[in-house]
Design a protein around this nucleic acid. Structure first.
Lengths: 210, 210
DNA sequence: TGCCTCCGATACCGAAAGGTGATCAAGTCA
DNA sequence: TGACTTGATCACCTTTCGGTATCGGAGGCA
């Protein structure tokens, strides 16, 4: 089963490969329908490797959850780092986030799977809740930063804006998965742009009012 | 197993009871962990009744999906039917939707379960997508109606506002499930109020911009 | 080189649960 | 009232998988 029959891989590498494949398979099939054997095989091992590196299925799932230390926000910050014009920034952010939503559907599926599981599994929720909190706080900080840099006075409380944008994004992911034709890339991007513009109004400009 | 050993229930009634119990159990345990036998037993029957009334597990699940012909929107319309003051309406709507989200967690769980399943099951998606579309369109109509009645000119395109509010609501449900302590009723309600106020600005009033 | 340890492979177990089909009871109609 | 139809029950089958126990080979160390 080992790809190279004569060479044993370092433990870390085995773990890494299993985790990567598990992420893929859990996203594709959901927790219940993901078979440990398939994950192992996809990574080039057998079940034994999984049980040798993780406590079991639930633990493997938990490891993925924690592993996905979101780089999402970092990408957004990077995208707008050198800009100082708010409308441009909004356009860029909307476009970037949209691309992520539409192109990396696996992430969306996995997120949905996490949430659905957290709804009934305390352990999952205990891992997921602080992650979500971090995301919201990160978003709030980024918004504050942008507001300060552009000299814009946000239309609403920062934490609320962060919560709204965070939830709106998740909701758009959900909607795009449920109805990808009607809620396509364009619709997602427009919604994001509109929401951002409403919450962070460019001084003197009134968005899209026909 | 039949509760009343001497009386046979009409087919419709059997179906209704099974559906009701299935809704409960699917929401509580999720698709995979919901056992047909438990659903049947909970409704006062055995597995056979399920197979006699539905094609199988997947079909039972689908029947629930279709059955939940959302009364959500109707409740909202009812709530604001007699009002004509926009801020009051916004307050009422936010409060009502929040109560639904926080109190009826079963619905939220079920919605999450539907979405997660739709992500990988074409058949589920084909049922879910038009339902979601209906919801969005209904929301758009309601917003239009409110705008007309209050004489407010919406800040943004109606369909976009509907999409944003719809997705925001779903995102809030998701977030409340994932982190119910941080995203509690108050946070949800404020977020809704803020978003509504931003999208439908009361004439001359500029929301919370201190 | 030879032993010892680690860790992944392999074979196996047992439980759980979806689905099936013969059977029998309740309602219906002539 | 007695046959026919409908539909739920019950026992059973089958498959699928998570988990475990054992084995064997690779690599390190003296």
């Amino acid at each position: 089963m080992q790809r190279n029959p004569n060479r044993r891989l370092p433990r870390e590498e085995v773990r890494r490969r299993l985790l990567a494949e598990a992420t893929r398979v859990f996203a594709e099939r959901g927790y219940a329908d993901a078979r440990i054997e398939d994950i192992a095989a996809g990574a080039g091992f057998t079940k034994g490797a999984v049980y040798s590196n993780f406590g079991g299925k639930q633990e493997l799932f938990g490891a993925i959850l924690g592993d996905g230390a979101e780089t999402e926000l970092a990408a957004v910050r990077e995208e707008i780092r050198d800009l100082d014009d708010l409308p441009t920034m909004i356009g860029r952010v909307a476009s970037l986030v949209t691309r992520r939503i539409v192109e990396d559907s696996g992430r969306g599926h996995l997120g949905l799977e996490f949430a659905a599981r957290a709804a009934r599994d305390e352990h999952t929720r205990q891992i997921l809740a602080p992650m979500r909190r971090d995301q919201r706080e990160g978003a709030a900080r980024s918004i504050a930063e942008v507001a300060e840099r552009t000299g814009v006075r946000p239309a609403v409380d920062l934490d609320q804006a962060a919560l709204i944008l965070h939830c709106l994004t998740n909701g758009l992911v959900n909607e795009h998965i449920a109805d990808p034709e009607a809620v396509d890339a364009e619709a997602v991007e427009r919604a994001l742009r509109t929401a951002l513009t409403c919450l962070l109004p460019p001084p003197g400009d009134d968005p899209g009012r026909e």
